[in-house]
Design a protein around this nucleic acid. Structure first.
Lengths: 292, 292
DNA sequence: CGCTTCCATGAGCGCCGTTCATGGAAGCGG
DNA sequence: CCGCTTCCATGAACGGCGCTCATGGAAGCG
């Protein structure tokens, strides 16, 4: 027998919340309905999907497979709905789930989403901020919790993940320092955890320039604020320096400057959906219209 | 509102059969049920999906999108079912739809499917034979009518198709000729339409050997039969020559022989399903265990 | 030993998708 | 022009599925 979309949403919610009752709350259902639903799904599949215990419900290995594929089914059904309506000349209405690291979310997304919303007022968004470490944003896409991941390129993922993507933005790093510093290069370097430290370190080495000391902060706005207060200088991507305070001076690093490239990853199925194509087009935006 | 799996199957059947009534027959439903179902689906999507006319029903552009994505949803739901059961230690039972060109279907599939069936008796197969011209077998996968396509590599497809694949078999061409011919190389060449003629032609040119005349046939078994009857010689892939008649002699072409490579293509979603992985493993089989 | 927080289960009910029966529209052949 | 056939549409009736409500059992916790 077929599983219904409602049943798949129940599986998803139970996994997310960790219990039947909490899932019921988020789905605006009774706990009883969730229990019945899971039980029915298990009967249809002939397999136990959750280990029920005192602390709620944990998916079995079989349950994890079901949840993972179920998210794919749900997403594809929404693509079907949105795409079909768009093909019929209707409005494009769907919810795009974007996983980005903080600086991209702050700098890249707002203008793109503004333009996209102007064009398609019925679009809505879930932007989740993910620390760009480990699998990072891409994991969100692989596990079906997001439709599009903003990543730093080059991105290394096992090929089996089967994601597709492209380039969005390629920009140089610039030097920022307090406005009234006589010799900015003698100031301590403030580094940024999510930065591609490896690249900037390599560049420093080519410059025979070893900064005196290194402060490490976890957030780029905190970093900007520190520079504004005269704590040191920093090497940051151009767009990060764009919305600087007046007390901060930006100095280009010339043609040999290290660069960072931001790209996106998504699943092939989603990459063909109208909404996601439009989103990627806007993300590429007026900045760097590149093929990809 | 959600579309149900039953509704998606109705869309698929209507497109395949070209009429509501015929779809009803293949689905073992009433014509009325099909009419109600399509109407309800259209209401849920807010869009007309089929143009009804005297000659049946043809999908609108919106309908085509819905049908295409619908096939993806249905396939993914079956992957969910089969994969979940397999993860729970149950048997692997699903239907694998394979699109292959004739010679691959005849030579590559039987041993692989034999071994796979021995391992998983509940698996079943739909093998469709597609002329390896134009989009060929890959189109079947792109349009959701097949799960795996057997292709000749290198394969050229628009990247937007978003398929993934790998190599299955790499083999040299060999020369076959009638057993009692004194000078096989003076015989007329019999060529084969689905053969990679370009490659063999190029090879002939490097050999400074221009065969006297060329017969062109559309089927490899007919070709073998012609050689057996003394009509000429041919250059064919090694496996094609494997099940030859006793009147046919095989002569290797040495290390510079032209080669052909057979590969597979599938969608990324399916490539992660247990059943398809097993099938690909068996297709690679004991012949050429390669990474890919 | 209550209290709380989990999940399970049975009864009842409404809606959705089915069949049955019927009707309308549009070629096709005398 | 008129049946005949072959399409799809529609309304009535019904059965099952998935929901809520009410209740019960199990297991930590102070």
């Amino acid at each position: 027998m077929d599983l219904t979309a409602a049943e798949l949403r129940v599986l998803d919610a139970v996994e997310r919340t960790g219990s039947f009752s909490a899932a019921a709350t988020t789905l605006d259902l009774t706990q009883s309905a969730v229990s019945h639903s899971v039980r029915m799904t298990e009967r249809k599949l002939g397999t136990v999907l959750f280990d029920r215990g005192r602390h709620g419900a944990r998916p079995t290995p079989a349950g994890e497979r079901a949840i993972l594929h179920g998210r794919g089914v749900l997403r594809l059904m929404d693509v079907l709905r949105a795409d079909t309506r768009a093909a019929a000349g209707g409005v494009l209405d769907t919810r795009l789930r974007i996983a980005a690291f903080r600086s991209a979310a702050a700098q890249l997304l707002p203008p793109a989403l503004t333009r996209l919303t102007a064009k398609h007022p019925q679009l809505s968004y879930d932007v989740s901020i993910v620390r760009d470490v480990g699998g990072g944003t891409a994991t969100e896409v692989v596990e079906g919790r997001a439709d599009l991941a903003i990543v730093n390129l080059p991105h290394r993922l096992p090929a089996s993940a089967g994601l597709v993507g492209g380039e969005l933005l390629d920009e140089p790093y610039v030097l920022i320092h307090p406005a009234r510093s006589a010799d900015p290069r003698s100031l301590p370097l403030i580094d940024w955890t999510e930065n591609c430290s490896a690249e900037t370190q390599a560049w420093f080495r080519t410059q025979d320039w070893l900064p005196p000391a290194t402060i490490n902060v976890a957030d780029d706005t905190v970093l900007l604020s520190m520079v504004a207060h005269g704590l040191g200088m920093a090497v940051v991507p151009e767009t990060t320096a764009a919305d600087r305070a007046p007390e901060v001076t930006v100095e280009p690093l010339g043609p040999t400057a290290p660069r960072r490239t931001i790209g996106y990853l998504t699943t092939p199925a989603l990459s063909r959906s109208t909404a996601l194509r439009e989103l990627v087009a806007e993300l590429r935006g007026p900045r760097a219209p590149r093929a990809g």
